[in-house]
Each structure stands twice: as structure tokens, then as C-alpha cells.
């Protein structure tokens, strides 16, 4: 697969959130504001990049039987790193992300890419994959956050754009509205990829990104 495609597919065709439906928990929780969405997305991208690179570097070293605990440790390490950095330089974002920052550790996307890609491909390709998936994640979160913030609070990046005339629809800030926007985005992506994304999903399944995939043995050759 060409390098360009490795990067690009994470943005739309195999978008981790909107197509593969991974990492939906932070997506829904954090996207009450566009800025938070971007922040989480970039933090995750950073972790994804770091973990993919390191795991790819160590792919011949880590024994198969203990690979999952190893991946988790590496990922947790990067998450803690990001946590320290945010606490020092971006405390507001740290506050906003709260618990979900630590939860990046168990974000299916990261473990999924580690298992499906980084453990089997070169460092360069793994880095590209991480960037693609990470940016795709960020993009999805930004879209979600922007829509929800716009309609639900009448602001974008904190700037009030209702001009005192329009009124925001509170439900979009709340979980119900979050799910609704999420559903609409998925439908939109389906439309844009002409349904082919859905096909690939049934082949490439969230299954394959799941930590238990190796143990369950059901989706060995799904990686594409």
C-alpha cells in the first residue's frame, strides 16, 4: 500500500470514529466544545504516534504472549507524558479533559492500531498510519465539537456568535444530542463514501481493533 494511502485512509474511508466506531466514549464525552475536541484529538494523536513508533521499533523484541501488556505499558507511558505536559502548559485543557485524558490509555484506536498495524509494519509506515488515524480522530472530534458547540451553546471556540438574536438548543450539549450528532455524522460519512465504508466495516470490524482479537482468533486476516 502506498504511503500516501496509509495516511489518507485514516481521515475518511477508515476514519477510526465514524467508520470503525472505535473510541466513541471520549468522542461523545469531550466534544461539548470544539476546542476540547481538537485538544483531545491532538493529545490522542501524540500518544498514537509515540506508541506506534515505539511498538514498531520493538516489534521483533516483544514476545507474542505478553504483547498486550507491553503495548498497554507503552501507551500508558505516553499518556502520562501527555498528562504532565498538559498540566504544566495547558492547565485549562487538562481540566476540561479531566478523566478522559487518562482514559486515552484504553482508547480502542491506539491499542487497535498497535495490534493491527504497528506490530507488523515498518516504523515509517506506522508513523504515517498513526498520523492518519490521529488526524482522522481529531477531525471527527472537531466536527462533532463544532456542531455541538455551535447549536448547543451558540459559540465557536468560545466566541459567542448568536448576536443576541439566535438561541442555542441546549440538548446538543447534553448526551442525547451528542449521540444524535454522532449518528448524523456517521450517516454523512456513509453517504460520502457511498456506503463502501460500511462494507469495509463489516470486513475490517471493530473486532480487529479489539485487544481480545488475537486471543479470540476470529479476525486474524482482517488487517488490510
Amino acid at each position: 500500500m502506498k504511503n500516501r494511502e496509509i495516511f489518507l485512509r485514516g481521515l475518511l474511508k477508515e476514519n477510526p470514529v465514524l467508520v470503525m466506531l472505535l473510541g466513541t466514549c471520549p468522542t461523545l464525552a469531550v466534544t461539548t466544545m470544539a476546542l476540547n475536541g481538537i485538544g483531545m484529538g491532538l493529545a490522542t494523536t501524540f500518544v498514537l504516534l509515540g506508541s506506534n513508533v515505539v511498538i514498531s521499533l520493538l516489534k521483533r523484541v516483544i514476545p507474542k504472549e505478553v504483547r498486550l501488556p507491553c503495548y498497554i505499558v507503552i501507551i500508558a507511558g505516553f499518556v502520562t507524558l501527555v498528562g504532565f505536559l498538559l498540566e504544566r502548559y495547558l492547565p485549562a485543557l487538562n481540566q476540561a479533559l479531566g478523566l478522559f485524558l487518562s482514559l486515552i490509555t484504553v482508547n480502542c484506536i491506539i491499542l487497535g492500531r498497535a495490534e493491527m498495524f504497528a506490530s507488523k509494519n515498518s516504523v515509517g509506515k506506522s508513523a504515517l498510519d498513526a498520523l492518519g488515524m490521529g488526524f482522522g480522530f481529531t477531525l471527527a472530534l472537531f466536527c462533532m465539537g463544532a456542531v455541538r458547540e455551535l447549536i448547543g451553546a451558540g459559540t465557536i471556540f468560545g466566541i459567542d456568535i448568536t448576536f443576541g438574536v439566535l438561541e442555542p438548543m441546549l440538548i446538543f450539549i447534553l448526551p442525547a444530542g451528542g449521540f444524535f450528532v454522532f449518528g448524523c455524522l456517521i450517516a454523512l460519512v456513509n453517504r460520502l463514501t457511498k456506503g463502501r465504508a460500511a462494507e469495509r466495516r463489516s470486513q475490517a470490524d471493530g473486532c480487529a481493533g479489539c485487544p481480545a482479537a488475537g486471543a479470540c482468533g476470529g479476525c486474524e486476516e482482517v488487517a488490510k
Partner: peptide, 8 residues
């Protein structure tokens, strides 16, 4: 319910 939550 949606309206009640959105435009209390």
C-alpha cells in the same frame, strides 16, 4: 422532551 431540555 427535546424542546423542554433545549429551550427550558
Amino acid at each position: 422532551i427535546v424542546l423542554m431540555v433545549s429551550f427550558a
